[in-house]
Design a protein around this nucleic acid. Structure first.
Lengths: 230, 230
DNA sequence: ACGCACTGATAGTAACACTATCGATAGTAC
DNA sequence: GTACTATCGATAGTGTTACTATCAGTGCGT
């Protein structure tokens, strides 16, 4: 197929496809002559993958490029592909480099990991991401309890095993690698969505709407001293 | 304190603080005279909250503004604040409006919710977010199993109860509302980080590095993935 | 032989999140 | 009282990102 059909089948404008080509997010098609290039179903697939990474996954073009590069790297074991993809994903959704997390926060995350018998490399970006959240919470004045972190860790463990379990019964190594990466990126969005649902439910459970408490003031503009009295 | 000290204490440049003021992310201080305005600790706190929302939570200025507006809305019940915050967060991290999820995907999410006895409003953005992931996975050629979704839902349930549990023993309604919102936004990042750690561990567990498959090239020095060639 | 789709290259655009500059003013130091 | 410095609101400018548009040249199909 030519680029116009690739556009029609993938839903992306031709100009965007050319942009993806330029940026290396999409392999070049087979050149038939000076002004004819042929694309196939794998290109359609790839465009959809890129759109999912960008839109649902919230990745930047640069991050998507790194992720796809590890995917296209043939001579890697699964574990290595995964590790590379994790690094390619980086610390944020984009490639932004903010201040690093504190050592204390990183150590607390390490303790959580140890308690779950996770064995991980110290360069796993998960340390940085999680530790930064702890630092942010501390800056806001909130110190999460061990039980809170343990619950999050248990949930992470559940998810990770579900992800890997979904992979186990696949045959092609290529497909496994792709699913692994897609699962990492889209799984973040999936858990975020489900969490919104679970939270609404849990909120009503614990704080019913017909709350007789008179916490809501009629008007008064008092300055609340928000500080955690730890 | 004056704006320069607010800057020093919060770590944000004065020009950025003025920007936050303009955008309504930060309440105006108390005007003492034509060119003197006094800020207090609550402003320092707020700046840190905004930075956490923007940097770690990945929110856009517009989304952060909506979220903070619901937080500042005094006459709301907790449940209502939460609901408003969920909507303020919107479907993506930013306010981008992409194509809606399919009805089939939305129904599948509804079934998952029902199986967990979540009772939620149909407008909860969690439906849209999760359903879109399902659509994306389908477009990639992957149909997640019920077991897979069930595991994610169980994890979401665990997290939601941990979040709410952390709130229950707080006294001030203002603080609870703030934590609820921060928890929603930063919690996404926290679970993402922990998930990365759990996945690395689970990957090694299920796909050991010394894999006898012919796909893995056991030759020692792997080319590190292309770092940023900029 | 003519027209249209295609090619790569380059230029332009819109949104976003700041960041810098400005003239006017006012509090503080001497 | 004068000099100095910080602040004020307003406005303009900057760098990045993710496209989107235009263009000159090429060649397949009828």
């Amino acid at each position: 197929m030519r680029i116009s059909e690739l556009s029609r089948r993938s839903g992306a404008p031709v100009s965007t496809l050319k942009y993806f080509l330029r940026e290396g997010l999409l392999r070049e098609g087979e050149r038939l002559s000076g002004n004819q290039t042929s694309y196939d179903d794998s290109h359609v697939q790839r465009v959809r993958l890129v759109r999912a990474l960008l839109d649902t996954g919230g990745l930047s073009i640069a991050a998507a490029k790194r992720v796809l590069a590890t995917l296209d790297d043939e001579n890697s074991s699964l574990a290595h592909t995964f590790e590379a993809a994790q690094h390619a994903l980086g610390v944020g959704r984009d490639g932004s480099s903010r201040a690093a997390a504190s050592e204390a926060a990183r150590e607390r995350i390490a303790r959580v990991a140890a308690r779950n018998s996770w064995h991980t490399s110290p360069e796993n970006p998960g340390f940085e991401i999680s530790a930064r959240v702890l630092d942010d919470l501390a800056a806001i004045g909130y110190e999460p309890s061990d039980a809170y972190l343990a619950a999050y860790a248990a949930a992470a463990d559940t998810i990770a095993h579900a992800d890997l379990g979904a992979l186990r019964d696949r045959e092609s190594a290529d497909l496994i690698a792709e699913l692994m990466i897609v699962g990492t990126v889209l799984g973040d969005a999936l858990i975020a969505g489900l969490r919104r649902l679970a939270q609404e439910s849990a909120t009503e459970e614990l704080f019913p709407v017909a709350e007789p408490r008179a916490d809501a003031r009629p008007s008064g503009a008092r300055q609340p001293q928000r500080r955690d009295p730890k």
